[in-house]
Write a protein that binds this DNA or RNA. Structure first.
Length: 464
DNA sequence: TCCGCTGACACGTTTGAATCGC
DNA sequence: AGCGATTCAAACGTGTCAGCGG
């Protein structure tokens, strides 16, 4: 059932020291499968939307993957970032998505580091890996480390698996990238497609209160009260008698209620979702038109692979058919390649934060699960919990990379072993936006020394 | 006027501390 | 005293919707 992709190619990030640990050859069977692919496909068939809010909003469905083929004893780091699907902004118009212009400048690029990282392969493989706590925000000044996105823009999550004992050795490590077409979504501040709303309510336990069975009366009552409150505020502000307020409310509120009841049959149409399986994004995903990509990007990906897992043939072609005339600009480009696993040599710079001064002798307080792999002098997993901020911050120490790690589980601890900017863990907002060097994207794999590396953000290729 | 965004709200789930029984 | 099961309240996550503002 699971969608999966096997490692088709494997190369070290760059010509640095060889990967620590076992022979990379042994890693050729690594598989990363998306859990609950049917649910994702159901959403994708309609056109997944993800709410983004200032305080941050979880994804639903949330990213959950299974890993296999890892070396049980070797340590791995698992990351997720969000990649723009294309260079456009969209709008919801008459029950479909339309291009509404060029994409806005890319927000500060962040990567979410799985809280368990780093952990041995046995840990990653023993159960599914959930990114439940990953949050999306539209607040470009966000200080919590959530992934920043633009509303009305399309993205898809991308998973990065790095074999590394810790974040400090990531640079010398092999990493692979995986993505799944059906996980693409449009970031929105309010749902546009009512079918998506219905799907979310039906499948998300937290939204159980909005399901049609049972609680309608309560919510209707709630709406009435809200309406009264709003009207009272409004009318009182204008010194209008409460008598008229109430009489007006009594009329209009029930009109509203009736109208909603009348809407129910429309909502029921959502039940036909499965029959109507289509996607506003049709075939464009296959083409991945990144029309706004920096020139020359194609030459950057020499040492990494992205395992793009296309939807099954039975799934995507109909979308292509249904939306062949989609206004989406990419739908008219290229051809579908569904039906086979594709390894995409997407341009990117495999730069990962590295701190040379890491004290490996520091006592460890916790290991990730039982391990029979002998002594491992590694930081406690939570040390790296959270999100990597891709922004660059001036540091006092030459050669120190100042990627910021945000941790929803303990910000203080998360950076405990980094020789980064210290108190500037949450840098002034201007660091978040202005210092993302797009030029870094073009010079990925020739790093002479650590100081030079510090110019480059982690996975900067994802932002253009 | 339109439309995207925001914040307050009710409802349900999750979490963790407190309590109880063995 | 220690452990596991249960209870309960606070925290959190959710979609809704009126109002705001560009």
């Amino acid at each position: 059932l699971n969608r999966s992709c096997s490692l088709l190619d494997l190369k070290p990030n760059f010509s640095g020291p060889p990967p620590a640990g076992p022979d990379p050859y042994l890693q050729g069977n690594i598989r990363l499968t998306l859990e609950d692919p049917d649910l994702w496909k159901t959403f994708h068939g309609i056109g997944t939307e993800m709410i983004i809010t200032k305080p941050g909003r979880r994804m639903f469905p949330h990213c959950k993957v299974n890993l296999s083929g890892l070396i049980p004893c070797a340590k791995y780091i698992l990351l997720v970032d969000m990649v723009p699907e294309d260079g456009f902004r969209y709008k919801w118009n008459k029950e479909k998505w339309e291009v509404a212009g060029k994409a806005e400048p890319q927000p500060p690029c962040r990567t979410y580091l799985h809280p368990d990282s780093p952990a041995p392969g046995s840990h990653w493989m023993k159960q599914s890996v959930s990114f439940l706590k990953l949050k999306l925000t539209n607040n470009t000044l966000d200080q919590h480390g959530h992934i920043i996105l633009h509303s009305m823009h399309r993205y898809h999550p991308r998973f990065h698996l790095v074999q590394a004992d810790d974040l400090f050795s990531v640079r010398w490590s092999v990493f692979q990238t995986f993505s799944f077409p059906e996980t693409s979504f449009t970031a929105v501040t309010a749902y546009q497609n009512t079918k998506i709303t219905k799907l979310k309510i039906d499948h998300n336990p937290f939204a159980k209160g909005f399901r049609e069975e049972g609680t309608n009366k309560k919510r209707a009552h709630f709406r009435v009260e809200r309406k009264l409150t709003a009207k009272c505020k409004s009318h009182l502000k204008n010194n209008i008698s409460l008598f008229f307020v109430l009489s007006d409310f009594c009329r209009s509120s029930y009109e509203g209620y009736d109208a909603e009841e009348g809407d129910l049959p429309k909502r029921k149409e959502g039940d036909t979702v499965k029959e109507e399986r289509y996607s506003p994004w049709a075939a464009e995903r296959e083409h991945s038109v990144r029309t706004e990509s920096p020139a020359g990007a194609d030459h950057r990906d020499m040492y990494n692979t992205e395992q793009l897992v296309p939807a099954p043939a039975s799934y995507q072609p109909y979308r292509f058919h249904e939306y062949g005339k989609s206004p989406s600009p990419s739908s008219s480009v290229g051809s579908s390649s569904s039906g086979s696993i594709r390894s995409s040599f997407e341009s990117r710079v495999p730069d990962v934060a590295t701190v040379p001064d890491h004290d490996s002798s520091k006592p460890r307080t916790q290991e990730v699960g039982p391990s029979s792999c002998g002594p491992q002098h590694l930081p406690a997993p939570q040390d790296y919990t959270g999100v990597l901020n891709m922004s660059m911050t001036p540091t006092n120490k030459p050669g120190v990379i100042s990627h910021h790690i945000y941790s929803p589980y303990g910000a203080e601890q998360s950076l405990g072993q980094w020789n980064g900017p210290g108190p500037a863990q949450y840098p002034p907002p201007h660091h978040l936006t202005a210092e993302y060097p797009t030029q870094a994207v073009h010079h990925g794999y020739h790093h002479g020394n650590v100081a030079e590396w510090s110019q480059y953000p982690l996975f900067s290729y994802s932002c253009w």
